[in-house]
Design a protein around this nucleic acid. Sequence first.
RNA 1: GCCGCAGUAGCUCAGUGGUAGAGCGCGUCAUUGGUAAUGACGAGGUCGGGAGUUCAAUUCUCCCCUGCGGCACCA
Length: 644
Amino acid sequence: MIDLEFPDGSHRQFDDGVTGLDVAMDISPGLAKQAFAIALDDELRDLKRVIEHDGKIRIITARDEEGLELIRHDAAHVLAEAVQELFPGTQVTIGPIIDDGFYYDFAREEHFSTEDFATIEAKMAEIIDRNDPIEREVWNRDEAIAFFKDKGETYKAELISDLPVDEEITLYRQGKWVDLCLGPHLPSTGKVPKAFKLMKLAGAYWRGDSSNAQLQRIYGTAWTNPKELRAYLTRLEEAEKRDHRRLGNALELFHFQEEAQGQVFWHPNGWALYRALQDYVRRCQKKAGYAEINTPQLMDRKFWEASGHWDKYREHMFISSIDQEDKVLAVKPMNCPCHVQVFNHGQKSYRDLPMRLAEFGSCHRYEPSGALHGLMRVRAFVQDDAHIFCREDQVTDEVKAFCTLLQSIYKDLGFEEVQVRFADRPETRVGSDEVWDKAEASLKAAADATGLEVVHNPGDGAFYGPKLDFVLKDAIGREWQTGTIQADFNLPERLDASYVAEDGERHRPVMLHRAILGSFERFLGILIEHHAGNMPLWLSPIQVVVTTITSEMDDYAREAAAILEAAGLRVKTDLRNEKINYKVREHSHAKVPVIAVAGHREREERTLALRFLGEGGKHQQVLKLDEVVAKLTSEATPPDMKFD
RNA sequence: GCCGCAGUAGCUCAGUGGUAGAGCGCGUCAUUGGUAAUGACGAGGUCGGGAGUUCAAUUCUCCCCUGCGGCACCA
């Protein structure tokens, strides 16, 4: 007898040889029809597989998260079968599920084209209509290898050879098509809902290694019903609407052009936004005890050799020279070695520590062309970089203070959900275990003290020290790694940084590398997408547009705008001979937070009619000029300058 | 860097082996109109660059550049 416990806690007994399907049938034929698979003690199993032992059972249907995963996994198999039927000679490799869908990697001489998608989708629908039962088979290892080799499926044969010796080799058969797979699967191909779509075609390296052959990857999405598929496609469109590249163009923030690949031309609006963010960070860092510095762009090659960067990153560095001199200079790809120079200049005492040196450091890196992506990945960027030189026993306090600063900045910028990733010692590293113990403990303690979710990243630290990475979640749930703090025991040694301690001897300081935004360019990209271009008033490039009903109020509008501008607001006037509807529409599209309208009445009463973005005309407020100044300057005050 | 796709007016895009179109924007004129598009007229393009096929190329072929989607990379 087999004793099974159901999710509601009830138990039922079944005869030996019972399958998941029998159990579902025993509950109700309707459930048996809907059932995809079972979870036995949380292990997913095929419906038709015999249940050999007691345990907790759940019947998986399309309603379960696992059910959706089964659909996607089967959709991948159906895709592979369709492709092999349509394009004989194509080899299958792997086809896992991913967020929102699945992909399958194929090896084929000729290239697929997105034009093939319609044909493949039609064939997939045909396979679903065939409703072939999907059968699990356990194979002998060598026979399985021989089987796939015989079929010319060398990738599959390689996969089997690499499986652990004691691993059970399972094949899944649907109609005439067979694939190596761990399973489980739906009972038949007809269970795959016709709510799938092939999305894109891409190259992908075999086993993710660029020295291996490149395969052709077909991405697809699959859902439990067409309504969910449509909802997903709509979600993609919404995400596209907040794409910072589209908004950057529409809101006249910045542009790119081919003569300066991966470098940003910031326009007046974009630069106002950039400056508002930078001024804010500058004030926050000053308050947190950082001293701002600035260091050279070009440094002699020998310098980078000493720092170790020449060896490791030479290919990603821009090199410069001048006809009159023999020297080779490199454009700095990072600021840390320069900061050590500032620290090294003149003798430092333990009394000078901790020394926090901050720089909005302009860096250049030769990123691979395929990696460039709008503001998110550029070749010239500015980091909100700083290095803290301190004693070992100061690390804990410094890391804690940094975490506090970072949290308050993220909060001010509208990011509430933040995660910390703690990366500890990798296998190859510098520094003694004793020092690593201390550094790791400091970072871990500081991470825990933040109250944020902490994820452990074992072995992912830099060779020179452990680190904390900060990941924030944006308005549509995407995660972005932005901030970081890293302990470094290596660079102070390489560049011979030292201070005189109380004992009168020279000691090495610990160096903490840290950034909160990472790069202004990338962070602004994230910020623009997070707010969908509707920047909070204090960051908005143009905060107020003063506009008129008719040209009779032009003088009054100019005067009002001058008063607002004098109060520190970013103001524009719009005195064009256009209807108010037209002007309101245009500035609303430009996402200007406040439109101040002046008509006859306003001019007579020395008021402005304020219209706020997103609120329509409903909540307009007519206020006296001094009230407008008071209200808007108060609302536009950067969060760090509010003292209430 | 690798694979696929794309590049036509300032922007978004349509189109064709016989040297090009729309909407918005821009300019001129009229209109002075209370909260998401006033009307009329007009200007504007070596169809990404180079080579080839052809009587003829924006269209077909090849190479290059740039962009887009992935992969690899990201101190």
